[in-house]
Computed example of a mutant assay.
Amino acid sequence: MKIYTLHREQVLPISLKEAWDFFSTPLNLEKITPAEMGFVVLTDVKGKSIYKGMLIEYRVSPLLGIKMKWVTEIGDVSEPYKFVDNQLKGPYALWEHTHTFKEVPGGVLMHDDVRYAIPLGILGEIAHVLVVKNKLKNIFDFRGETLKKYFKG
């Protein structure tokens, strides 16, 4: 299984507490995901912040409008600096997304580090080159632009 990585970083003009409060609230993920992904949080998480072991179920349409279930578990949590979500069920053979936050002059430096793998062996590798790599890039580009507007940075 070939493992790929995606890294993004962005400075947001907010405090560390504001960053943690926003990103550790599962419902906010819907706000920063492109509409065409059909991303919906199914688990009742209203008013809840993440915690180690938290299971969150989503519905997502990653390709061709095909709906599928995605279940993640929150792994490591080091409030307010870091948390990790790991896919238990979904479109990837591996999905490990590490979110880190660090105070810097002017706000918070946010890092997204994703380790992921595509199922289906060589077919998955071909799909990665033809579709998945660019799809993920576009999703994280959208997030970056949306966060700039949301936090007016």
Rank of each mutant, 00 (worst) to 15 (best):
S61H: 03
P62C: 13
P62N: 11
L63C: 14
L64H: 08
G65K: 14
K67D: 10
K67F: 08
K69A: 11
K69S: 13
W70G: 08
V71E: 13
T72A: 03
E73K: 13
E73C: 00
I74M: 09
G75P: 01
G75F: 04
D76W: 07
V77S: 00
E79V: 00
E79M: 12
E79S: 15
E79I: 02
P80L: 05
P80E: 06
Y81K: 06
K82Y: 08
F83A: 00
F83P: 03
V84K: 04
V84D: 06
V84W: 06
D85K: 02
D85G: 09
D85N: 10
N86V: 14
Q87T: 09
Q87M: 08
Q87W: 12
G90D: 13
G90R: 04
P91S: 01
P91M: 13
Y92K: 12
Y92S: 09
A93L: 12
A93P: 05
A93N: 07
L94F: 09
W95Y: 13
E96C: 08
E96H: 15
T98R: 08
T98W: 02
T98P: 01
T98D: 01
H99C: 04
T100P: 01
K102D: 06
K102E: 15
K102C: 01
E103G: 00
V104E: 11
P105D: 15
P105S: 15
G106K: 13
G107I: 00
G107C: 04
G107M: 02
L109D: 05
L109P: 08
L109Y: 04
M110G: 10
D112I: 06
D112N: 03
D113H: 14
D113Q: 09
V114K: 10
V114T: 06
V114Y: 06
V114H: 06
